[in-house]
Amino acid sequence: MNFVSAIFRTALKLVLIAAAAVFALSLIVVALLSVVWVLLKALLTGRKPAFVTTFQRFNQARQQFKRGDWATRSGRGFVRPASDDVVDVQAHEVQAQKARGALPLDH
């Protein structure tokens, strides 16, 4: 009885190892096919893949934060306003009737 159970356990282990190997190889094949598809699409359209541009933007932002350029950049992002650009205003409540009449509905 022990001999039969040992053979059964060994066969079951081999089947499970084979199933795991087939699963792992299928995942690798799908990953490789996906990479090939993305690269072919990039070659045909002439546009970089999205993950490439995302990592390039991340690296650019990382370099700007490392150098300390984030506060003085012009264009997008964080720009420190000049002292003469700051305007103090007096806050007041806007009534709903006046607010509806102030802006035309058809822009």
Rank of each mutant, 00 (worst) to 15 (best):
F55V: 03
Q63I: 09
A20C: 04
K98E: 09
F8Y: 14
V94D: 02
V29A: 13
A99Q: 10
V79M: 10
L43K: 06
A61M: 11
F78H: 13
K41F: 08
L43N: 02
A61K: 14
D69F: 05
L25D: 00
K41E: 07
F58E: 04
L103W: 12
A19G: 05
L27E: 11
L40D: 15
V29M: 03
K66H: 15
V79G: 13
W37E: 04
A99E: 12
A42Y: 02
F58W: 14
V36I: 11
V89Y: 04
A82Q: 12
N59P: 06
W37G: 06
G68K: 01
L43P: 00
A20M: 02
V86E: 00
A91D: 15
L103Q: 12
A18T: 02
V52M: 03
V79K: 15
V29K: 07
F65D: 05
R76T: 14
G46M: 00
V89K: 02
T53E: 14
K66C: 13
S26L: 10
S83K: 14
G77L: 00
V15E: 10
V94Q: 05
T72S: 01
L32N: 10
M1P: 10
R67P: 01
F23L: 06
V35Q: 10
I17Q: 04
L33Y: 03
L105D: 07
K98H: 11
D84Y: 15
L44V: 07
I17E: 07
F51E: 12
E93N: 07
Q60F: 12
R9Y: 06
F51C: 02
F23N: 04
S26H: 06
F65W: 13
Q97T: 08
R9H: 10
L33R: 09
R67T: 09
T53G: 05
A96W: 11
Q95L: 15
S74M: 08
V30C: 11
T45Q: 00
F55Q: 05
S83R: 11
